[in-house]
């Protein structure tokens, strides 16, 4: 298989890390985590192609998708709960326990 897929997964992972590090909104940070998990899924399927008689990589990709679903749902519900309470989705502005 061509190495372009490997480079694509590297790029997705780096972009996801960049989004998680630099964006100030919690929802966009969730989007970045989805990008990172997509890179993991792409790698799992790509390395599965080395062993055509096995399907471990594809089934691992399936379970990574399940984990991503759980993470997104729980994260979104927490964000909505926090937004109702603090009226902001910016994690820096939720500083109630911060000593000022």
């Amino acid at each position: 298989m061509s190495p372009v897929l490997l480079y694509l997964s590297f790029l997705l992972f780096a972009l996801g890390v960049l989004v998680v590090l630099t964006k100030r909104d919690a929802i966009v940070v969730l989007l970045g985590i989805e990008l990172i998990l997509s890179a993991a899924i792409l790698n799992a399927i790509h390395f599965n192609q080395q062993f055509p008689d096995r399907m471990d990589g594809q089934l691992f990709a399936l379970f990574i998708i399940v984990i991503a679903v759980c993470e997104a749902v729980v994260g979104m519900s927490i964000i909505i709960r926090v937004y109702r309470y603090y009226h902001t989705a910016v994690p820096d502005q939720i500083n109630e326990l911060n000593e000022r």
Binding site: A14, R24, V28
Partner: peptide, 20 residues
């Protein structure tokens, strides 16, 4: 409509480039 602002653009890009 929700706008998002960025923080630490230089450090973040450097770290992402390092990881890549």
């Amino acid at each position: 409509p929700m706008q998002v602002s960025t923080q630490y653009p230089v450090i973040g890009s450097l770290l992402a480039l390092l990881i890549f």
